[in-house]
Computed example of a mutant assay.
Amino acid sequence: MTDAQTTLQELKERMAQFVRERDWEQYHTPKNLSMSIAIEAAELMEHFQWLTVEQSKNLSPEALQDIGEELADIVIYSLSLSNFLGLDLSEVVLAKMEKNIRKYPKDKVRGKAHKYTYYQDRNQESGDRGQDKSEP
């Protein structure tokens, strides 16, 4: 199955079944799952820790396999956490994307990598909350 063939709901259901069949609901609490996501994210970062930017863009098939497994662990724990909390991942992801669209207007941030507060600070300094006067 590919991304194009699989829904988030199907993944969530498979994760719930996996956990249920192993009687792991007792361990899959928000605290434990959020910690597991952070731990797996750190394990993902380990694969890139000492690489140059260029090396990180040109990974071997073996490295991609290992990185894919770490990324899968993050997604798996995220699915389980969303199951526990009753969150609809599509809803929360799309809502967050809409929020990010507002926080990072494309005409202001294109090609820039500042945190959204940078643009708020610029607006306040210029006395205009709508548009940054120092930007072209």
Rank of each mutant, 00 (worst) to 15 (best):
F18E: 09
V19L: 03
R20D: 09
E21W: 02
E21H: 01
R22Q: 07
R22V: 05
R22W: 07
D23K: 03
W24A: 12
W24S: 02
W24Q: 08
E25Y: 07
E25Q: 14
Y27G: 11
Y27C: 14
Y27D: 13
Y27M: 14
T29K: 05
T29Y: 01
P30I: 04
P30S: 06
K31I: 00
K31N: 12
M35Y: 15
S36M: 15
I37L: 08
A38P: 01
I39D: 15
E40V: 08
E40P: 07
A41R: 13
A42L: 09
E43W: 07
E43R: 08
E43L: 07
L44V: 10
E46C: 12
E46G: 12
H47W: 09
F48R: 07
F48M: 06
W50D: 15
L51Q: 02
L51H: 03
T52K: 00
T52Q: 04
T52Y: 04
T52V: 04
V53C: 01
V53I: 12
V53F: 12
E54V: 07
E54P: 08
Q55S: 06
Q55W: 02
S56T: 05
S56V: 09
S56N: 06
N58T: 08
N58W: 07
N58K: 08
L59G: 01
S60Y: 00
S60W: 04
S60F: 02
S60E: 06
P61S: 11
P61M: 11
P61Q: 09
A63R: 11
L64A: 05
Q65N: 13
Q65F: 14
Q65S: 11
Q65P: 03
Q65R: 14
Q65E: 15
D66L: 14
D66A: 14
D66Y: 13
G68V: 09
G68I: 09
G68M: 08
E69D: 15
E69V: 07
E69L: 11
E69S: 05
L71T: 12
A72D: 01
D73K: 05
I74R: 02
V75K: 04
I76S: 11
Y77V: 01
Y77T: 03
S78I: 03
L79M: 10
S80I: 11
S82I: 01
L85A: 06
G86D: 06
G86E: 00
G86W: 05
